[in-house]
Design a protein around this nucleic acid. Structure first.
Lengths: 349, 349
DNA sequence: ACGAAGCCGGAGAGCGCTCCCCCGCTCAAC
DNA sequence: GTTGAGCGGGGGAGCGCTCTCCGGCTTCGT
């Protein structure tokens, strides 16, 4: 808890501006809120008074009566029954995924004058986050949640806080969400391998308790099944670079004949590339690699990563738009917006 | 602007809880604010009433009277007179630096129950940001500003908003800040090169309109001057991966004899490594490379990057602590906390 | 046993804003 | 000339909370 502001010279109030301008509070309020029924002349006077006094409306007071805060929360959920090397905060804020989400959301929110409060919600903080949301601190929430069993989407739903999800929820929920056609993306990778004559595809898949992890694996497998592959080796990892490296190593050790590797995100693919190099596999000659996301790291590695592009910034922007819509019309029906992934051909496959 | 919340069942108020518990508003308020003078028995009753009604204090109302918001802003400033390939938002949110700052700050803020509003402040948004801060939306600001001529630190100072800077300000200012011994860091790199017998050191330095860029360059040059190097080639770049690649290429083309390269951050170093590889220079045999930061990307490249470590998370945490102190005691004297960099030896030098 | 000294709870006054209602003015219509 | 509609502006009532002040009760000293 912070202490109150100093006995600083209090900021001017509406009342004072009104007095200065020789009008009533209401008139000043009307000018500020762009109500059109104000005499242009009076408006002029009031605007000058505002200028002169350096008046700025008090947010808390306004928010108290309008029940609107003009800010939304970006909640990053994490059920935390998995084990990670890095602490939660470092991990999520170091992952370029979250950065791209933030950038995309802000692209829409900023012009609307809406601000973003960023809230990690790991298990210990879950209650704190729910409390915060109930306090009416924000008008709505952008919820980044990947775990199928994450209780947070349901809780937000129960709470009645306008919210939009970053992916199809684990179980059906009356809540808008944005997603990419995960299975199609995985199929694109599979078909790439088939087209280039690979015989032994395998995958470093995402965590199987996430919808993205599940869908990408299922999509990859079913696309290959069409071409006669009854079994496709898969090794799950945690979407981190180190995890990808480890999983690729494990996969190549168990299935040394592997000549094509679909890695469920670019960060892991970076690690996989490393593992393959350490095992003296040439890329793409010996092993073709396809990632997922098309993040900056796809360009940073050598060979550059062939990957399945999902327009993350665009998706986040859409989340923001859906949220705004929901805030403005809370009873509208929940909408889903599904984006199309596409194969970006670079050097690794 | 968002529309008001639905005609939803209004949340219970203090008054209602009081009625339910059969006490006065004040008593409930005392219980909530942990005032110790409440009879334990009454407190028990009130707590049950809060539980039963599902009461949550209204933030706006509280904030209106306490003049405290329990949230701070993370303002990322950008004077924007430089040209960048990527748009501002994507660039800053993709840079691991900002992620680490966020994580570090939150590490301190979260336990205090203080929330973080994230605000990019490029030139067009500057006024909007200042307005926002004046509205009393936040109790203070963590200001990430690197440009020596950035007007924002001064403006915040004038505004009287408690603020802490992420680096020594361009010109002296009565404001707390956190920094690392930039010149010492650069010296560490220089000495590393000298110790390993390199004869032709050069540097990809940061933008010369940032204190970090200036200081690292100056430190590198003066450390080498001690060993007789009157001239050290330097090519500035913009702290991005692509910038580092370009600059390294330019440097090696102008000074092909270069056998040691100090790169002012790891992101650029990653690019430089790439450029060197493309030029068929072996690392570290032909060219030794030392980066700055010790970010995850230092581990991601091959060879792994020898780099000057600055404890960014720790520094951000300290910023948060300084800010909290300033908020609680606005008249305390501004403090600077300077961290020590250290050389992390890995494969590249 | 009586008065002084706590101690705890209640009532009331705002914090700065919005919004509703009403008043007074102007202008057109009858 | 009177009425009624229309419109711009003012006043008042809160929004939900904290905090100061005050009064009644207990407790202790003498």
């Amino acid at each position: 808890m912070a202490a109150p502001r100093p006995p600083a010279p209090r900021a001017p109030t509406l009342e004072q501006v009104a007095e200065y301008a020789g009008v009533s509070r209401s008139t000043v309020s009307r000018v500020i809120n762009q109500v059109s029924t104000v005499d242009p002349e009076l408006r002029e006077i009031v605007e000058r008074a505002i200028e002169a006094t350096g008046y700025v409306p008090n947010h808390a007071a306004r928010s108290l009566v309008t029940r609107r805060t003009d800010s939304v929360a970006l909640v990053v959920s994490e059920p935390a029954d998995r084990e990670f090397a890095e602490p939660f905060l470092s991990r999520i804020f170091t992952d370029p995924y979250l950065g791209r989400i933030t950038a995309g959301a802000l692209e829409v929110l900023r012009p609307e004058g809406i601000h973003l409060v960023i809230m990690p919600a790991d298990a210990p903080a879950r209650q704190q986050v729910l409390r915060y949301l109930r306090q009416g601190h924000v008008d709505g929430v952008l919820l980044i949640s990947s775990h199928v069993a994450d209780p947070l989407p349901q809780q937000l739903c129960d709470l009645g806080v306008p919210a939009v999800l970053s992916a199809r929820p684990g179980r059906p929920l009356p809540m808008s969400y944005v997603d990419v056609e995960q299975q199609t993306g995985a199929r694109l990778a599979a078909e790439r391998f088939i087209a280039s004559g690979r015989k032994h595809p395998a995958t470093v898949c995402g965590p199987l308790d996430t919808t993205a992890g599940q869908d990408r694996l299922a999509g990859f497998r079913s696309a290959l099944a069409v071409h006669g592959y009854a079994f496709v080796p898969a090794e799950p990892a945690d979407f981190t670079r180190a995890g990808g490296e480890r999983a690729a190593r494990a996969l190549l050790s168990a299935y040394p004949e592997t000549d094509a590797l679909f890695v469920a995100n670019d960060l892991m693919a970076e690690g996989a590339l490393q593992a393959l190099r350490d095992l003296d596999r040439r890329i793409p000659e010996d092993v073709a690699v396809v990632g997922f996301d098309d993040s900056v790291s796809a360009l940073a590695c050598r060979p550059q990563l062939t990957t399945i592009r999902q327009p993350i910034e665009e998706m986040a922007a859409e989340m923001a738009r859906l949220l705004l819509a929901r805030i403005r019309e809370p009873d509208g029906r929940p909408r889903s917006v599904i984006f199309h992934p596409e194969l970006v051909e670079r050097g690794s496959a």
